[in-house]
Design a protein around this nucleic acid. Structure first.
Lengths: 179, 179
DNA sequence: GGCTCCATGTAAGGAGTTACATGATTCA
DNA sequence: TGAATCATGTAACTCCTTACATGGAGCC
């Protein structure tokens, strides 16, 4: 019983908020401060359906007034699969993840000097702006065990600070090399 | 004329190694030290075909002996699209990227104390191991403008060092909280 | 009454994964 | 001679993206 990264995260979200609706899961993705997660209904709802079909997620319908809603929770199997998904770290996951800015720096030399400087300025600006947001993040106040979400937010802050430091070094290098 | 992240990277690789074969592009992905890039022939070859169809990549067949091979290079349009792909940084790219370890830490509290410690140990171990590799990385010796590839490798080192620092803080937090 | 958010989806098309397929070259 | 690497793909399947569709609830 293996799950994809997306399914693993969905199990995690349900675990931290259960009982909760599919919409709550969707919102967590849409408000995620991390770049790269799919946040489309066309990805989340089918994934939840798969997890229900496989018996990892229990659901009962929950009517508040006329508005239909569904209450999701982890089954015992689902909780076990979540724990295994977390614990099974592969070697490759030790690597640095995809960073769209770092990716672009690979080919920065294809730009002329002015465009290189412009790129680095913009990269610093968007990173600083997201860093401020990340520093204010309190995780998900409605989640149980919020300390892990806060710890994760601090991890993002560390990553963004590292990127900022690196961008400044790079800026100096480019200035010296071409200026 | 927009390209996906994968197509953008392919344009970049071709730019840095042109003229080069599709196999060289494929190899760059397979040897990428970054977690999350697709490295399958079923992704790369069709992507290259799309770029050829759109006129971003020129190709001429190149026979060394009996082995057929194709020599790819960027067209003028392709080079312009590469530059635009690099320069068009969206706001969201300022955010921290997906990190499978950080993702899992979100739900670390679903493990019991021993498993949490085990997770953190393993996370440190795989990160340290990849950090050593990243420190040795010299980019792609056969590429033109290798300084950007080296700069990128330093960026990965920064990111991994930040993760290691964060994991150690987290380890202390878990030890104090539960121990 | 209209706007925004809550809440749940589906459909078409595009992209990626896994596995399979083929054949040449090089080195032990 | 066999294994590894070079070199190029295809096919079936799954998954994701984009766009569309539908309604209730609360508020100004």
């Amino acid at each position: 019983m293996d799950v994809t990264e997306l399914e693993g995260v969905i199990l995690g979200i349900i675990w931290s908020r259960q009982p909760c609706s599919p919409y709550v899961v969707l919102s967590r993705f849409q408000r995620s401060p991390t770049w790269g997660w799919s946040s489309s209904t066309g990805a989340i709802y089918p994934a939840i359906r798969r997890l229900k079909t496989r018996g990892l997620v229990d659901h009962r319908s929950d009517l508040n007034g006329k508005r239909r809603s569904e209450a999701l929770s982890l089954s015992a199997t689902g909780a076990a699969v979540l724990r295994r998904w977390i614990s099974n770290l592969s070697e490759g996951m030790g690597s640095a993840g995809i960073d769209p800015i770092r990716t672009r720096v690979n080919y920065l030399a294809s730009l002329d000097f002015d465009a290189q400087i412009e790129f680095l300025d913009r990269a610093e600006e968007v990173t600083r702006s997201r860093l401020e947001l990340a520093r204010k993040s309190k995780g998900d106040p409605e989640a149980q065990h919020n300390w892990t979400l806060q710890a994760t937010a601090r991890g993002a802050v560390h990553q963004l600070e590292a990127r900022l430091k690196w961008l400044r070094e790079l800026r100096e290098l480019v200035d010296r090399g071409n200026g």
